[in-house]
C-alpha cells in the first residue's frame, strides 16, 4: 500500500503497554526489549490508525505525507 502517513513513536511518552502491538491487524509492530513498539513491517500498514486511537499515552502519531514524499 502506498505510504500516506509517516508513523512516529515517541519513546519518551510510551510506557510499553503493548496495546498497539496486539491491536494491529497487520502485525506492523515488533516489541523491543522494554516492550515498546518498533515499526518492523511498515509496508503492511493499511493506515487504519487503530494504534493511534487506542494509545493511552499519546505516543503514536500519523503525520500526513505531502505528495511526492514516500
Amino acid at each position: 500500500m502506498p505510504a500516506k502517513y509517516q508513523k512516529e513513536i515517541d519513546t519518551r511518552l510510551c510506557k510499553g503497554c503493548g496495546i498497539c502491538v496486539d491491536l494491529c491487524p497487520k502485525e506492523v509492530y515488533d516489541r523491543d526489549a522494554l516492550g515498546k513498539p518498533i515499526i518492523a513491517r511498515d509496508e503492511n500498514c493499511v493506515y487504519c490508525k487503530q494504534c493511534m486511537l487506542h494509545c493511552p499515552d499519546f505516543a503514536i502519531e500519523f503525520i500526513p505525507l505531502k505528495e511526492g514524499e514516500a
Binding site: K15, G16, C17, G18, I19, L53, H54, C55, P56, D57, F58
Partner: peptide, 10 residues
C-alpha cells in the same frame, strides 16, 4: 501502562 483513562482522554 495500559490504563483505559488515557484512551478516554484521547
Amino acid at each position: 501502562p495500559g490504563c483505559g483513562n488515557g484512551i478516554v482522554l484521547s
